[in-house]
Design a protein around this nucleic acid. Structure first.
Length: 405
DNA sequence: CATCCACTGGAAGATATGGCGA
DNA sequence: TCGCCATATCTTCCAGTGGATG
């Protein structure tokens, strides 16, 4: 008997559950689509486009609605000779300045042979290049800036682009900005001069409720999953978990996908509730490990120091106790230590990523301070630290020390 | 009820890295 | 090669915080 045997797959068309899948229709967003359509109307009429801002948490259909509507808009514009529409889409995920966004817009518009690097030019030069590229396209250009809240307070580009025409930098182009933000508060941190122009049209996408998520999941599952491979309670459970957690369709769908994979590994006939619950933990751990992998050397050393305290049952720790251990590890690895103040920043970062938890303590005349502890399972922290590879011996030592395991 | 401790958090500046055009 | 430019990371400096203590 061979090691491998063919098994009946849970999935029919797994791609329909992946992040990049574009469904033919958008479930449960009728009102939003109507409002969005109205906001885009000037494009078809040949006017200067509105600037549009979309707000709403991740996974509530902002990007999906944009892609869906813009492709329809492109198709519909083709029947009017006097409307020449182009669309540029940039995800600002890793871009945290106006400069970076401008560079990426230029590269998006230029052909592969003429790409520019992400540093080195004066800011004004990059803007000039951007205007040149826009001019050479002509017509109406919709610029979609996804996850725009990443740029924080540096909103120059949001000020410049809408005004480029009236300032004489653009002649034959009618530019329109579509900004997509995950963060509702972003709107308020924009400088006032930007807020005026940019928020001409504001569209709010609210989180999906459990009923809407069930609707979405059913339509996807119909394509993705074999007819009899789904226990009855699975979709309601995925929907309920996601609705309570974030209201995100992406979360609900990923949950279903992972549950299906787990069911497959189990050789199960169908996805069951238990697979969903396990999938939830798997996703959580993956998220944390991914976050920890992105840290710098000192980030790792700081986490190592906290983890070491945790193995000795000495968490929560305060700075005063943590810093000396951090220094010892630096010595051991012949790394130049950074100051307390910088360690403090790393602790803040780790807290932001939900890797550490932090509590304020107050000892009155003996000062107030923060205490830190791991917010993830110790094994997850050790696994992630081991992945780094530069201090295997220390991690191995900590594993011994750690309770149970 | 003022004081005071032990940091915290903001800001500005230093340093290093990598890239630009001339 | 040199003088600029942008960015990431760290350092230096320092005012501000807030509840237990006397």
């Amino acid at each position: 008997m061979g090691r491998f045997t063919r098994r009946r797959s849970i999935f029919e068309e797994k791609d329909a559950l992946r992040d990049d899948y574009e469904p033919d229709s958008l479930e449960a967003r009728d009102e939003e689509l109507d409002a969005y359509t109205d906001a885009l109307q000037p494009v078809v009429d040949g006017w200067q486009p509105n600037n549009i801002f979309l707000y709403g948490k991740t996974g509530v259909g902002k990007t999906a609605a944009t892609e869906y509507l813009l492709s329809e808009l492109e198709a519909d514009c083709r029947q009017y000779d006097d409307v020449d529409l182009s669309i540029v889409h940039v995800n600002c995920n890793t871009l945290n300045s106006s400069y970076q966004i401008a560079v990426h817009l230029v590269n998006e518009l230029r052909d592969p042979g003429r790409q520019i690097s992400t540093t080195g030019y004066p800011e004004a030069t990059v803007f000039d290049m951007l205007y040149d590229e826009l001019e050479s396209i002509g017509g109406t250009v919709l610029i979609v800036l996804d996850e725009i809240d990443n740029i924080g307070t540096d909103d120059d580009i949001l000020y410049e682009l809408p005004r480029a025409r009236s300032n004489g930098y653009l002649e034959s182009v009618k530019p329109g900005l579509i900004g997509i933000s995950n963060n509702f508060a972003f709107r308020d941190q924009l400088s006032p001069k930007v807020k005026d122009t940019l928020c001409e049209e504001e569209l709010h996408f609210s989180p999906y409720d459990a009923g809407e998520l069930r609707q979405i999941l059913r339509s996807r599952a119909e394509l993705a999953i074999r007819d009899d491979a789904l226990d009855q309670d699975v979709i309601p459970l995925c929907a309920a978990i996601a609705a309570q957690d974030t209201g995100s369709a992406r979360q609900a769908i990923t949950l279903l996908l992972r549950a299906g994979e787990l069911a497959g590994n189990d050789d199960a006939e169908a996805i069951a509730e238990s697979h969903v619950r396990t999938a939830r933990n798997v996703i959580e751990t993956e998220r944390v490990q991914e976050g920890m992998r992105q840290l710098t050397v000192h980030g790792h050393l700081v986490l190592l120091a906290v983890t070491a305290h945790a193995t000795r049952d000495e968490t929560p720790v305060r700075m005063r106790d943590l810093y000396p251990l951090y220094r010892r590890y630096c010595d051991h690895l012949a790394v130049d230590p950074i100051t307390k103040r910088s360690v403090h920043d790393h602790l803040g970062d780790l807290t932001m990523q939900s890797v550490l938890e932090r509590h304020e303590r107050n000892a009155g005349a003996r000062g107030n301070y923060y205490e830190y502890a791991l917010e993830v399972p110790m094994t997850a922290a050790l696994d992630a630290l081991e992945d780094v590879g530069s201090f295997d011996d220390i991690v191995a030592d900590l594993r011994h020390r750690a309770p149970q395991s």
